[in-house]
Design a protein around this nucleic acid. Structure first.
Length: 134
DNA sequence: GCCAACGTTGGC
DNA sequence: GCCAACGTTGGC
């Protein structure tokens, strides 16, 4: 079991929309590091869902429902998608501000490289964010 | 809306 | 294969 965090702009595709849809194809990733992370996702892995640009907080947990396959929306290049389904909403969304202020979470990409949209988390980091959201 | 930080492209 | 110029992301 591995742990991940994905970003989405809520006005593009929010966690609420994911709940409403029941599952979604995570397409449109055009960054190699992010793509490589998608390819490492296994069915059942847990994925924190972060709202970027607006909200700036972790609002829920998703689960990998289908492992990677080619991204048909890509006109050229070698890109992948996974499928995600909602798992659990986070009671008290965890803001970027509080994540940045937590000494245990200084290593995650959200803090170190704000631009990566699919990143892995250590189990301890995942647990810590969930604890903060209780 | 600005702009820093990062990624990508393309001329040499 | 270097690196300047350009494009994009995303916090502020």
């Amino acid at each position: 079991m591995q742990y991940w965090l994905v970003k989405s702009e809520p006005f593009e595709y929010s966690y609420d929309q994911l709940v409403k849809d029941g599952s979604t194809v995570w397409d449109g990733i055009r960054n190699y590091q992010a793509r490589n992370n998608l390819r490492l996702m296994k069915k059942g892995d847990l994925v924190l869902y972060y709202h970027s640009r607006e909200g700036l907080e972790v609002v829920g947990i998703a689960k990998v429902s289908k492992e990677h396959y080619p991204d048909e929306t890509a006109e050229k290049g070698d890109w992948s998608v996974v499928e995600l389904k909602p798992y659990k909403r986070i009671e008290n969304p965890v803001s970027l501000k509080t994540i940045k202020a937590n000494s245990k979470l200084q290593e995650i990409h959200l803090v170190r490289n704000g631009r990566l949209s699919v990143m892995s988390l250590k189990e301890k980091e995942y647990d810590e964010i969930l604890r903060m959201g209780e």
